[in-house]
Every structure is written in C-alpha cells, then in structure tokens.
C-alpha cells in the first residue's frame, strides 16, 4: 500500500515529462484544478455532510477578483486572490448563518437559490463585465502576471496547492474538528448530546471550504485568462464539484482526486469530439453518474474498492484456513 502511494505520487510529479503533447499536460492541469475544487467542496459536503449546490458562488468570486484587479487597476491578477478569499469568507458567513438552520434537501436548495441569484446579478452588472465577462492580460507583462504559454507551470502550481489542501484535510480529519464533522454528518442530535457545538463546526467547515473553492476559482482564471458569468457562477460548476467528489468518494481524502482523474479526461474527450454540443453531453453524463451513484454506490468508488479488498482478504483467509485444516 505504501509503495503504491509512492508510485502514484511520482506519477503526478513526473506526468508533464511523460507526455509529449501540450494537450495532455493541459488536461493534467485541468484534472488537478478540478480536484482542488472538489476537495474544497468535500470539506463541507463530504466530511461535514452539508450538501451545498451553491459552491459556484465562491468559485466565481475567486475567478472574478483577479481579473477585476487587472482590468480596473492594472494590477497583476494574482493581487486579487487574497481579496477574493476575504469576500468569499464574508459571503460564507452571510449565507451560512441562515441556511444552516435548514436540513438536508432544504439546505441544498437554499444554496442553489443564493448562487443563482449571484449569477444573475453578476450577469447584469457592468462593473464586472455583465454578460460578456472579463479578460486577463493578453501577453505577460512581468512574471507576476502568471501568464504562461505552456501548461506545465500551471500544472505544478496546481499540484502544490492540491498537495497543501490534502495535507491540511488529512490533518483535520484526524483531529477533533474532523471527528466532530463526521459526527454532525451522522446525526446532529446525538452529536449535540456529546457536547459538539454543531452550528459552529458547520461554519468552520463552510469557511475552509469556501476559502479553497475561491482559490480554485482564482487559479482557473489565472490559467484561462477569461471569465464570464456562466463559467464562473453557473450551476454546472457546483454540480461538477459534487459529481467529482461523489464519484471518487465524498468524505474521503483522495476521493475527489480519483473522481477528477476519471471524469475530466472523459469530459475533455466528449468536448473535443462534439465541439460546442459537448456541454449538453456533459449534462447527460453527470445525470447518469448521479443516478448510478445514488442507486448503487452512494459511498463512491473508493468505498467500492475498500469493500472489494475486504472481501478479497476475507476470501484469502478462509482459503488459508481451509488449507491449514
């Protein structure tokens, strides 16, 4: 198991040098970016069990602020990143306090409503480019613009951010905070009876989740150099994070990464095969995945893998016992 981890880690580190075409390196960067977004969602939706379908609002804030900093003040886009995180945290508090009083589907629906509201406001607000959106620097003025021709620098930037996020998540899931999140997901009433301040711990999860989702949005617009209301705040953004996390395994450390590794290349293929019509196909694929997961594998692929390996080791044990007898 340990050397499997080392091999996978090495594969991620060396991947851009193993592929010859920029297209594959770009897809690799897309995978990592999606993994960051889904891992960020996973803190609130997976570990703490609060299924937000409105995370696009944090992604969009993260994506817009760098390009706003550039287009209005001529600053390097990266200057907008910290401000985006601060605004996302503010939004998280304002949205979280009332919506956390809702449970289950009602919470999810409330988050959709807020995110859609934000999308519509952004689409009609000239200061942020309204429906046409915003552009980043066409040519890099200094290295601070983080505008590279090759996808490889983005790949490593994203890999570093993802590694940091997963390390933090790993630490949290083993700590009091992680245990309290899982207890809240399993049952708020018993969690309370054990002294868990439910509202506070949900808010901690939301703040962390919002901050990293915002960062994912910033990384997106730094790489792509363009943002419009649909690609920043569209509901497909939120759904993508959920599907990716749930496919691999929500509430597990590596589930979102696994989901991204499987889903993003698939999406890239359908988009290049069908062109503009590909996004319609994306919806169909997402819908199919939701149905299959909800019906057969709510724990995602990592859970399937865990059960399969348990079954296998039990089988081996019985075989050994039979041989011994």
């Amino acid at each position: 198991m340990r050397w499997l981890g080392i091999v996978i880690g090495a594969a991620f580190l060396l991947y851009p040098w193993l592929v010859t075409d920029d297209f594959y390196a770009r897809t690799g960067a897309d995978v990592l970016l999606a993994a960051i977004g889904a891992s960020a969602w996973n803190i609130l939706g997976g570990y703490a069990g609060q299924i937000s379908v409105g995370h696009a609002m944090f992604f969009g804030i993260g994506a817009y602020l760098p390009l706003l900093a550039y287009s209005h003040m001529g600053l390097p886009p990266v200057a907008g990143v910290p401000l985006a995180i601060v605004i996302s945290l503010g939004f998280a508090i304002v949205v979280g306090l009332p919506t956390f009083r809702l449970h289950g589907h009602y919470f999810s629906m409330a988050t959709i409503a807020v995110a859609e509201l934000v999308r519509i406001v952004i689409g009609n607000w000239d200061f942020v480019g309204a429906a046409t959106g915003l552009m980043g620097p066409a040519v890099s003025r200094t290295w601070l613009d983080l505008s590279f021709r090759s996808p490889i620098p983005y790949y490593y930037l994203f890999l570093a951010v993802l590694a940091g996020l997963l390390l933090l998540t790993w630490h949290l899931q083993r700590s009091r905070m992680g245990y309290y999140w899982r207890a809240i997901r399993a049952g708020e009433r018993p969690a309370r009876s054990l002294g868990v301040r439910v509202a506070r711990y949900k808010l901690y999860a939301l703040l962390l989740s919002a901050a990293f989702t915002s960062l994912a949005g910033s990384l997106y617009s730094l790489m792509v150099g363009f943002i419009d209301p649909e690609s920043g705040f569209g509901i497909l953004r939120s759904v993508e994070m959920i599907i990716i996390a749930a496919l691999g395994g929500a509430g597990t450390l590596f589930g979102p990464l696994l989901g991204a590794v499987l889903l993003i290349p698939l999406q890239t293929v359908t988009n290049s095969l069908f062109g503009g019509g590909g996004s319609g196909l994306t919806y169909i694929i997402y819908g199919g995945i939701i149905v299959v997961l909800a019906r057969f594998e709510p724990g995602g692929l990592l859970d399937l893998w865990r059960r399969a390996s348990q079954w296998w080791s039990r089988r081996r044990e019985t075989v050994t016992v039979r041989h011994a007898a």
Binding site: R176, Y180, R182, A186, L194
Partner: peptide
C-alpha cells in the same frame, strides 16, 4: 443514535474529544 458509518472506536472518540 450511534454514528453508523464510523467504527466503535471513532464513535467513542467523538465523546472523548
């Protein structure tokens, strides 16, 4: 109202925390 998906140790650890 046990935490179904968690192990017995993890259930009790929630209390111990």
């Amino acid at each position: 109202a046990t935490f179904e998906e968690m192990s017995i140790l993890d259930n009790v650890m929630v209390g111990a925390f």
